[in-house]
Simulated scan of single mutants.
Amino acid sequence: MEELKSAVNEHMDQMADLMEKLTAELRSGLKPAYENFIGFFHAIDWKEPWLICLVSFHVMLLLVVFMSRKNINFQMCLFLLALGGVYLAERLNHLLAGNWKSFAGQNYFDSHGIFLSILWSGPLLVIAIIILVNTLFSMCHLMVRWKKAELKHRARVARSKVD
């Protein structure tokens, strides 16, 4: 019985420590996250041509997604290409890490792939989510049209039976 009490007391002490750490983090607010983001942002040389091309690629892809919002088949191709780009991000990170001297001023490509995840996979995932939401809205609109057509057809059939 004593072992059980001591185990429960140890568990309660651990939970109290975790709650204390959590409340300390909440009291500090978002300042550490903001400082980390600002540090990350300033560590990048945004005037490098390959970074300008990468940002331009994402902007152009976003524009193509908005302009082709009515063409669901094309959007599905873009969706699969975006997810394929995210899938291949790890291989791309290894390839770029080995050849960074030929196109970049500094090595942005760490072994964990944080930089590429933020600047390559993040925007592609946002674009994929936009395509997905657009597809869901299109499906809802199509279901409403289909149900209206079905109700009109039933009304015509019911009128023809009456006549």
Score class of each variant (00 low, 15 high):
Phe79Trp: 13
Phe103Asn: 03
Arg159Lys: 07
Gly29Pro: 03
Glu35Gln: 14
Gln14Asn: 08
Val162Phe: 15
Asn134Leu: 10
Glu35Val: 00
Ser56Lys: 10
Ser117Tyr: 15
Glu10Thr: 08
Pro123Ser: 02
Tyr108Met: 04
Ala24Gly: 05
Thr23Leu: 11
Cys77Ile: 15
Leu51Arg: 04
Asp17Met: 06
Ala7Tyr: 08
Leu62Cys: 12
Phe57Thr: 00
Leu83Gly: 05
Asp163Met: 14
Leu116Phe: 01
Ala16Gln: 07
Ala82Lys: 14
Met60Tyr: 12
Phe37Ala: 12
Leu83Phe: 15
Arg159Ile: 06
Ile72Gly: 09
Gly98Leu: 09
Leu119Cys: 03
Phe137Leu: 07
Ile127Ser: 00
Asp45Lys: 15
Val162Glu: 14
Glu25Ala: 13
Gly84Lys: 04
Phe103His: 04
Glu20Cys: 08
Val65Lys: 05
Glu48Gln: 15
Arg69His: 14
Gly122Ala: 11
Val144Gln: 01
Leu51Asn: 01
Met15Asp: 11
Leu119His: 12
Glu25Gly: 10
Ile130Ser: 06
Ala7Leu: 12
Gly122Lys: 02
Val162Pro: 05
Leu26Lys: 15
Leu4Ile: 12
Met19Tyr: 03
Asn36Val: 00
Ser102Val: 04
Ala128Asn: 10
Ala128Pro: 04
Asn36Met: 07
Ser68Lys: 11
Lys161Ser: 08
Gly122Arg: 12
Leu124His: 05
Val86Asp: 01
Ser68Val: 08
Glu2Ser: 07
Leu124Arg: 07
Trp100Val: 12
Asp17Trp: 03
Gly39Lys: 01
Leu22Val: 09
Trp50Gln: 09
Arg27Lys: 13
Ala16Leu: 06
Phe40Cys: 01
Leu80Lys: 13
Ile44His: 06
Phe109Arg: 02
Leu132Cys: 14
Met1Thr: 14
Ile38Trp: 02
Leu81Ala: 15
Ala24Trp: 06
Phe79Val: 09
Gln106Ser: 05
Phe40His: 01
Asn134Phe: 05
Ala155Arg: 14
Leu136Lys: 03
Met19His: 11
Lys70His: 05
Gly105Pro: 07
Lys152Leu: 06
Leu132Val: 02
Glu25Asp: 13
Ser28Asn: 15
Ser138Cys: 03
Val133Asp: 04
Phe115Arg: 07
Leu26Arg: 14
Phe74Trp: 13
Arg27Glu: 05
Phe115His: 10
Tyr108Ser: 05
Lys148Gly: 00
Ile130Leu: 09
Arg154Leu: 14
Asn93Asp: 06
Ser68Tyr: 06
Phe40Lys: 00
Leu81Gly: 04
Glu10Gln: 13
Ser28Leu: 10
His94Val: 11
Met12Gly: 00
Val59Trp: 15
Gly98Trp: 01
Leu116Gly: 03
Ala16Asn: 08
Asn9Val: 09
Ala43Cys: 00
Gln75Leu: 13
Ile131Cys: 02
Gln14Leu: 12
Ser68Asp: 04
Asp13Glu: 13
Ala97Glu: 08
Leu51Trp: 01
Ala7Asp: 13
Arg27Asn: 10
Ser56Glu: 08
Phe115Ile: 07
Lys147Ile: 02
Val64Pro: 00
Phe66Tyr: 14
Met67Lys: 15
Leu96Glu: 03
Pro123Val: 13
Ile127Gln: 13
Met12Cys: 08
Leu116Lys: 05
Ser138Lys: 06
Met76Asp: 06
Ala89Gln: 13
Ile72Asn: 07
Met60Asn: 07
His112Ile: 05
Val144Leu: 09
